[in-house]
Design a protein around this nucleic acid. Sequence first.
DNA 1: ATATCTGCAAAGACTTTGCATGAGA
DNA 2: TCTCATGCAAAGTCTTTGCAGATAT
Lengths: 162, 162
Amino acid sequence: MIMGRRWGEGRPGGRWHGELRGCGYRVTMPRQVILQVLDEAKKHLSAEDIFIKVHQIYPAIGLTTVYRTLELLVRMGLVHKFDFGDGRARYELCDGNNEMAHHHHLICTDCGRVIDYDDFTEEETELIKKTEKELAKKYDFTVRNHTIQFYGLCKKCNALKK
Amino acid sequence: MIMGRRWGEGRPGGRWHGELRGCGYRVTMPRQVILQVLDEAKKHLSAEDIFIKVHQIYPAIGLTTVYRTLELLVRMGLVHKFDFGDGRARYELCDGNNEMAHHHHLICTDCGRVIDYDDFTEEETELIKKTEKELAKKYDFTVRNHTIQFYGLCKKCNALKK
DNA sequence: ATATCTGCAAAGACTTTGCATGAGA
DNA sequence: TCTCATGCAAAGTCTTTGCAGATAT
C-alpha cells in the first residue's frame, strides 16, 4: 500500500467504485460522500449525524437519500446497523479484514451513554469465531456480522444512585 | 417450592407483589396482567403483541399503559428490551437466577426472521461472566444484562440467493 | 385521603414511500 | 438514451406526553 494514499483514490468513483459497481449500483456523488463521512467518523453515527456532515460537503443532499443509501450499504454488507434502544439507529462502516477495529458496546440504561469497548482477549475473539462456525453448521445460517452489548449503569449514574 | 404452585400465587398482588412494592410501585391489575403475559410467553414479544394478549385478559387496558409498564419493568431490571433492527422493540422477562433460560439471537437481515439460540457451551457462559467482571472493574460499569446477536442470512434466504 | 396510575387523544420522533426531475453508464 | 438515483413532500410506524378521571394503600 502506498503511504498517505488510499486505494482507489484518484480513480473514477474513488475508493468504493468496485464495491458499488460490482453489485450493479451506480457511483453517485451522494453515495461517495456518505461513504467518505462514514469512513472518516470511524464510529457509530445516527442518520441525522450523517446527514449533517454530508450536508457540509454536498449541501444538495436530502435526508431521504441518506436513509436510502444506508439501507443499500447495509444490504451490501459494507455498513453495520446498530440499535442501542433509544429509538434511533446507528451506522458504522464494517472494517472488512481489519478485525482489530471491531468493537462492542456498554450501554447505560439510565443516561443512554454508549461506551466503546475494543480490548478483547485473544480468548474472546477465538470463541466468537468458533461460535459463528458452529451456528453456521447447526442452523444453516451465514453469519455476516455480530453485536455484543452490555447494559447497565455507567460510572456517573452509579454514583447518583447512592 | 410447592409443586404446581408459584411463589406469591394466592397472595395479594400475586407473584410480583414484592418486586413492585419494594420499588415503591403500586400493584395494579394492568401491571399484574402484563407480567403474567410476559411470563407465559417465555419469548420476545413486541409492545403490540403484549397489548393484544393483555387485552384478552383485561380489555380495559390501553396501549399507553403497556408502554409505560414495560418502561417501568425495564428500569426495575425485571424485563429486558431487545432491538432487532426492524423498528419495533421486543420485551422479555429476565430469568433472574435461572441462567439456563437465557438465550441469544440469530437475525436474518433479508427476511427479518429471528432464531433463538440457547445451546451455549460451558466455555461461552464462563467467558461472558469473566468479561462482565473485567468491564465492571475497568469502566466502573455495573452490568445488568447483555445481548449477543448474530446477523446474516437464514437457511431460506441463503437458498434464494443461489 | 391522596399520591399514584390509567386511558384517551394528540403530539412527537424516526423512517419510508410516491412521484416527477435529474444524473450515471 | 434509458435506466437508475435523487429530492421534496407527505404518509407511516412505533412510542411518548398531557390531562382529567379512576385506583391502590
